[in-house]
């Protein structure tokens, strides 16, 4: 098991990096840009084999930031390619992340139905 302080440290550092990107670059960077950047960045690093070591030492500190979601997509795709070949490239990513994506959409919908924006 990954020690809790390592999850805190790695997770905190990944968020700190996001903060630096927001504060030190163009003012037009929105949370949407950050999320897209992290998921793509995580997926690419994972493809290069650089994200897995981070998950080993950081645990949830590396998987909970959205870059971890990108990592999961890539790993799913790569594993499925090993088993199924070409088709795996298309099915593997979503299969590996299906629970998260569905949860996000369904909980998102439920929260929207149950609550009203307070402003």
């Amino acid at each position: 098991m990954v020690p809790l302080y390592m999850a805190f440290l790695i997770g905190g550092l990944l968020c700190l990096l996001g903060q630096l990107i927001m504060d030190l670059t163009k003012a037009s960077i929105t949370p949407g840009h950050i999320l897209v950047g992290y998921i793509s960045g995580g997926a690419i690093l994972s493809g290069l084999g650089l994200y897995e070591p981070l998950v080993k030492i950081g645990g949830a500190g590396a998987t909970i930031p959205l870059s971890g979601f990108g990592h999961l997509l890539t790993q799913g795709s790569l594993k499925a390619v090993e088993q199924k070949g070409l088709l795996g490239a298309f099915s593997g990513g979503v299969e590996a992340t299906a629970a998260g994506i569905t949860a996000a959409v369904v909980f998102g919908y439920l929260a929207a139905v149950l609550f009203n924006p307070k402003g």
Binding site: T30, P31, P117, K118, G119
Partner: peptide, 18 residues
């Protein structure tokens, strides 16, 4: 009105924005 303008010009009001 703060919230009508916010949702038209910027972000949904419940999004965590700094």
């Amino acid at each position: 009105h703060h919230y009508t303008a916010e949702r038209q010009f910027r972000f949904p009001t419940e999004q965590g924005i700094q």
